[in-house]
Amino acid sequence: MNINFLLFLITASFLMSFGLPKNIQKKVDKEIEKTFNIETFNFTAVLIDAEINKELPSKFGENNFFKIETNNTLLGYAYLSKAPSKTAEFDYLVLLDKDLIVLKSKVLIYREDYGGEIGSSRWLRQFIGKSDSDTLILDKNIIAISGATISVRSMTNAMNDLLKSLKILQSKKIL
């Protein structure tokens, strides 16, 4: 058997079994279309070596980090993950431009009532423009929301971890 064909088969089955859930993919597509102002694009997973992964504060598994391309031109990246709220976990999306500057952050699914205020577009706007040279500090450069302390802290930590991870990946010339 041709080894290339074999690899193709494995990759295909890998993608099929590990792709994003449909409802999430739909939301992600919508955000990408809106943010980058495009209609068609390629969305492919960026896989990070397991050894390097260990050094990263954020999770970079097979369904976390994607590159967004159109006509073979890199437009930016999408990072998806989960973070804890008071009694559950929420799914969030961060869109980055090709220089890894935050273009958009969004809470895709929030599963409890408590702390759901962090889904506010107005609040999430604070992360736009942040890059790996920024350290986010609650009450200093990130304004909190009363009554949503746990989720506010959780989302801020998640963003900080992501920025730190991107810095490590850049320093290793992976991105």
Binding site: F60, K86, I150, S154, N157
Partner: peptide, 22 residues
């Protein structure tokens, strides 16, 4: 096994005190 390994390692506990929300 690589996939399984990477998942286990990613799920491990982080000892960053700021992340200990719960």
């Amino acid at each position: 096994s690589l996939i399984a390994f990477s998942q286990t390692s990613q799920d491990s506990i982080t000892f960053n005190p700021q992340k200990q929300l719960n």
